[in-house]
Structures are given as structure tokens and as C-alpha cells.
Simulated assay, not measured.
Amino acid sequence: MNGEAWLLGPAVVLGALAIRTAVTELRRPGTAREQWAFLQSRRALFAGAAASLVAGAVGWHFLGAASAAWAVLTGLLVALIAAPRV
């Protein structure tokens, strides 16, 4: 892609996650901490790191450096899914 255009996709998704967190925090104070609590789970962080490494390695082969942002986003979303629910 041209210039930094490859960064637009991950930036939009991360922006949407931030907006979702802000809106729910405005509706119910304290929910932002609950939404991002998955970052304290070792299981979730390990799963996210593993997914990020795999996505980065595979993506590097096809996209080069552009895969880094996608790999980080993949790891974050996998960690969110893998976190134990309370």
C-alpha cells in the first residue's frame, strides 16, 4: 500500500474499541476497568502473545513490516476472547 495507509485498518479498530470503552464508561462509571481487566489474566496475555507472534510471523512473510500493527491488534483481540469471565 502507499505510505502509511496500511496502518489505517488497525487504527480504526483500536479507535472503535476506545470509543466503546468511553461510551460505556459514561453510561456506567467503573466499567472501563472491567472491560480492560482481561489484561491482568496470565492465560489471556499468553494466548494473546502467542497469537500475536504467529500472526506477525505469517504476516511478515506476506506484508513485511505492515503486519506488525495487525499482529498487535490480533493479540489484543485474542487476549480479550481468552480471558476468563467472572
Rank of each mutant, 00 (worst) to 15 (best):
L77Q: 03
V12M: 15
A32N: 08
L53N: 09
A50I: 12
V86K: 12
A83W: 04
A11D: 01
E4T: 11
E4W: 11
F38I: 04
V58A: 15
L45F: 10
W6R: 04
G3V: 09
S67T: 11
Q40I: 06
R33N: 04
H61R: 15
L8D: 15
A16N: 10
R33P: 01
G30C: 02
R27H: 04
R28D: 09
R20F: 04
F46N: 14
W60D: 05
V72R: 07
F62M: 07
G75P: 06
R27G: 09
L45C: 07
L63T: 02
S67I: 05
W70S: 08
T21R: 05
L53W: 11
R42H: 13
I19E: 12
L53A: 15
A57C: 14
L76F: 06
P84D: 15
V12E: 12
V12H: 14
G9K: 11
V13A: 10
A49I: 11
V13K: 01
L26H: 02
L53C: 14
E4D: 13
M1H: 11
W6M: 02
G64S: 01
A66K: 06
G59R: 01
L73F: 10
T31Y: 00
F46K: 15
A50F: 10
P29I: 01
R43W: 15
L17Y: 07
W60C: 07
I19H: 08
A82N: 04
R33A: 12
A49S: 15
G64H: 04
L39M: 10
R28Y: 05
P84S: 15
H61I: 15
A66I: 02
A57L: 14
G64A: 00
L39I: 08
I81G: 06
G59D: 10
Q40L: 12
Q40K: 13
E34W: 11
A32V: 00
G15S: 05
T24M: 10
I81M: 06
V72G: 06
R42G: 10
A49G: 15
A82C: 12
A79H: 00
Q35N: 08
L80K: 02
A66W: 03
A44N: 02
G48T: 06
A22T: 07
E4M: 12
R33I: 09
V23L: 05
R20C: 00
